[in-house]
Structures are given as structure tokens and as C-alpha cells.
Design a binder for these strands. Structure first.
Lengths: 143, 143
DNA sequence: TCCATTTTTTGGAATGAGTCAAGAATATGG
DNA sequence: CCATATTCTTGACTCATTCCAAAAAATGGA
């Protein structure tokens, strides 16, 4: 498993100060998958009962800016965070229940798609969200 | 140009009641590109000065559910609406200024991508958001 | 054309994720 | 161990969006 020391080293490696809220938040993101801020606050408070929600927001922003966690914001949902970074994977979202699952990117590096016409933009990443229904919510799954 | 009658027919064609707020909102979305709700309210009130913001929200929801407009929710931005529907095009978002531009989909029909592993989901659409910098914000553009 | 029914709009209040700000606490480098 | 800069706490606040009940309007049939 990943220990507190590992998280501290991850923080130092990203030139971030090692604080207890940051360690707790980083640990929480690793323990959960696609968690929203509220869930992260809950888990972080198991370790550190008095962290303020503001500290969690600040930590998440710092961790996301440093690339230690990835922020995903599926339309119709609050911001979510995940620990898988660097492999440019994508997500599939259930239209019915909102469940999110990971989908590996066939290309593996960003940008994994080339736009047909970039409208003058310099594109460095292509984010793909697949929409559909998870097994439990799919019409076939209900028969 | 598109006339009020055209918009009324679009509403009837979608089995929606023809109301003045809906016509004004549909017209506003056609007149703007990637407009947020506030801008739509402003333009709709040029035709119909007393529409409530709630009526605009309801109209946008009804139009989006009927497929007459498309709702896009870029992370870090409020909901935006556009009139181009049915051609499965994508968007490029500027990381710096938030500007949005259309990018035609090379495939043209949904889903335009096949997931490598669908995690048990039934996928019907692949939404692509390209991230980068627009010409005005790009490092090259500033030299 | 007019009425009754159903749907939509109004207006105001409420929700809730996220942000702002000032002072207190803490991590870091020397 | 100290000085300094960063981070955390606390609490109030913003603002897009939603909820609610009453009033208004659109539609289909007479």
C-alpha cells in the first residue's frame, strides 16, 4: 500500500510544502476513485478531523496544479478528482446514474487526437468523455 | 435569415408548445454562438423585455431536451448553448481566456470514437474537448 | 370562435458548490 | 532556533441554478 511517507515524498517531489491537510487530501484521493470534494473532505477528516473545507479546496487546487491529482468535471456533476495522472486516459459517464469509469486511451499520450481544423488554436490535449449507460442502467441490463 | 415563423415550426416539430419566451430564446441562441445564460437572457429581452430568468432557464432546458439546442458545459465556465445540433462537432477551449471555437468532427456521426474497453457501458456518444491556447493567448501569438 | 384543460411563466426565495479575506498557525532554509 | 513566506482557519459571501405556488397563456374540442 501507499504510506504517508510516500505521499510526503510526492509532495516534496512536486516542490510543494508538506502539510497535514495536503497529505490527508492526497491520501483521500488515492483511496477513492472519481471522488467529489465532499467525499474527499469526509475521508480526509478521518485522518485529520478538523481540516476546513477551504484547506481541502486549496490542497486540491495545489495538487491539481502540480499534477499530482487530476480534476475532472463532467457536465452535470460537481468537480471530481482522481489519482491516475500522466497516462492520458479518458472517462465514460452514465447518463442515468452518473457513474464514472476509466477508459484507457489507445494512443496513450496527449494529444491523442488531431483536430481537423484547429481554428487557430494551439492544441495540447484532447479530453474525451464517452456518454452512455452503465450495465445496471442500460436498457438491456433491465430485461 | 431565419424568421420567427421558422422558429415556431421548429418548436412544433419537436412537439413543444409555441410560447413567446421559447421563440425568443431559440432566436437568441441562433443569433449568438456559445452564449451563456446571461447573454441569452439579454438578447431574449430585446424581443421580450419582461421574460423572467426562470422562463429562460426552463426554455433552454426544454429546447435542449428536444434537441433544438445543445448545452455545453466547459469546465470552469457556466453552461453555454449553441444552435448547431446533429452534426456531432466538438469544441476547443482556450486555457487562458476561456474562448470556445467549433471543431468539426472528422467522422461526422456519433459515437465518433470507439473505446478500447467500455467497462460494461453502452456508449452512444463521444464528446471531445480540445484544450490549448487561442491565437491571441498562445505563446507564439505574443512574440 | 369560445371554453376547459394542461402546460408554461412569473416572482421570489432557497440551495449549494465554490471563493474571498484577515488573522493565526506552520513549514522551510539558514 | 529564528525569520520569513506560505498555508490554514473561520466565517461571510457570491452567483448560477433550482424550487415553489400562484397567475397567465397555449392547445384541442365544442
Amino acid at each position: 500500500m501507499t504510506t504517508t511517507l510516500d505521499f510526503e515524498q510526492m509532495l516534496r517531489g512536486a516542490a510543494l510544502r508538506v502539510t497535514r491537510p495536503r497529505v490527508a487530501v492526497l491520501s483521500a484521493v488515492h483511496a477513492l476513485s472519481h471522488a467529489d470534494t465532499e467525499a474527499i473532505i469526509g475521508v480526509a477528516r478521518q485522518d485529520l478531523p478538523k481540516v476546513s473545507h477551504q484547506a481541502v479546496y486549496d490542497s486540491l487546487n495545489a495538487l491539481a496544479a502540480a499534477g499530482l491529482v487530476r480534476r475532472i468535471q463532467p457536465p452535470g456533476s460537481v468537480a471530481r478528482y482522481e489519482a491516475r495522472v500522466g497516462d492520458n486516459h479518458h472517462h465514460v459517464v452514465c447518463r442515468s446514474c452518473g457513474r464514472i469509469a476509466d477508459v484507457d486511451c489507445a494512443v496513450g499520450h496527449a494529444p491523442c487526437l488531431t483536430a481537423s481544423d484547429d481554428a487557430g488554436f494551439t492544441i495540447d490535449e484532447a479530453e474525451v468523455i464517452y456518454w452512455g449507460y452503465c450495465f445496471d442502467c442500460s436498457p438491456e441490463g433491465k430485461t
